[in-house]
Design a binder for these strands. Structure first.
Lengths: 241, 241
DNA sequence: GCATCGGTTCGGCAAATGCCGAAACGTCCT
DNA sequence: AGGACGTTTCGGCATTTGCCGAACCGATGC
């Protein structure tokens, strides 16, 4: 039936396991696409060096390229790649900060960042909390006592609210799990993922509640966003920003 | 609040990303503990070489050691490590088979294997299916249309059945999610994980339905197991073995 | 059509890495 | 106490790997 055999885990891991390449992947973990030169700057190496790295990442199927004239835009190949990165981050030690710049950026990432295509960090967790408190999402601890399944579901009320907000839960891409969570590596708590998380995040960007930072993965909250989150979803961002 | 900053993904990935070390990790992915010499044999390198590798894996927090006299038993540090390996396997290419031995082993892994502490492979998926068909587990596609949450839960009926089988869903370790699924890298479908999956698997081993193979990760189905699975859970293993 | 620009390829260098055998270490057994 | 055993440490070797600058390639634009 299935021709698949043991898989070459070492090859993929080796592809990720170089500081420069990891920086590239993390820079793309915000779901965006960047040209080789930008990635070279991000990793702090020359163009020729990054080119070799990118070739390796392509070979390992971690990235894809889109040719566009003389530009080549690289992005993560699948959401599975992003998921693998998050899973590794869950195990990894915190990295010592090397510069003031890196420090402020690290702090920004802890506050609010993109986990491929949905909101993560303290803001992501706060939104997740607020959605539950306002009866938009329920944490269904189905099963009994010990055997709790931490499944999240959209309530009927939530269905209304979300539609009013501009995210129709019925019109999400089919082939992807709608409501899903992600364990936030920094907060060790859940934030909203899946198709719904992505759609909600996209809508917030569309409404200019959120803005990309200098690094796409970093997310900034606008004044409108601060107000919108408070009035629409009851998110108190006071603790975060 | 939280002192965590950007994490050193590259370091962990590099630790996994060597063929010998990956073999070690995969050998331990069955949840067992092995001494250094056994791991050396598994990876096909000398004792001195494996010692260096093990030191690296310890440094990256992927393994833990238990000293026992002149033996030292190594095992995966956390379930997160196993999860990361599975996630990487989901991306990785199938590895070309090098020997007849490796081929039969690879086929055995596809049939039935341990995913750290619960059953995976075709058998794992078959059990998962049967549990649902027999109303022991329900796939609650909560939410509407597009926003389906694929949460699994134990039914009241299932609660009875499982208790009768010797797995009390109320007495599972608290600190772990009870009902959980895992995407099987070979089958691309769900198999049962979490505390319940682990308990169920353990019980099957206790009843001698399952037996460890030469490699702990490989699982063999006994005659009793074949019958037990059929009568108790309605699993048809005809297609698999 | 020629200069420019983004990107890859090539050559060469320095550093890191995997590997082994020999030796050292600590534990167990007699 | 002495020998066997499982494991780690050390020294040395061959290979791989990351890095850069220079040259090259193809698309763009004046």
């Amino acid at each position: 039936m299935d021709a698949r055999t043991e898989t070459d885990v070492a090859h993929v891991a080796a592809a990720i396991g170089d500081p420069s390449r990891a920086k590239v992947l993390l820079a793309l973990a915000g779901g965006g696409a960047l040209p080789a030169s930008a990635l070279a700057a991000e990793a702090g190496v020359s163009n020729s060096t990054i080119s070799g790295h990118l070739a390796k990442l392509l070979d390992a199927r971690l990235l894809t390229v889109e040719h566009d004239g003389r530009h080549r835009y690289y992005r993560l190949a699948t959401t599975d790649v992003a998921r693998a990165l998050e899973q590794l981050a869950l195990i990894a030690r915190p990295l010592p900060v090397r510069s003031l710049n890196a420090d402020t950026r690290a702090k920004a990432l802890l506050r609010a960042r993109l986990c491929y295509d949905h909101l993560a960090g303290r803001l992501g967790v706060a939104v997740m909390d607020a959605l539950q408190e306002n009866d938009i999402l329920t944490a269904e601890h189905t099963g009994t006592a010990g055997a709790t399944a931490v499944a999240y579901a959209v309530t009927p009320h939530g269905h209304q609210e979300l539609s009013a907000f501009g995210v129709d839960p019925d019109r999400l891409p089919r082939r992807r799990t709608g409501v899903r969570y992600c364990v936030d590596w920094a907060e060790q708590r859940h934030h909203l993922a899946g198709a719904l998380g992505a759609a909600l995040t996209a809508r917030m960007f569309a409404l200019e509640w959120l803005r990309h930072g200098r690094y796409r993965r970093v997310v900034h909250l606008t004044d409108g966003g601060r107000e919108g989150l408070a009035t629409t979803f009851g998110v108190d961002v006071g603790q975060i920003f």
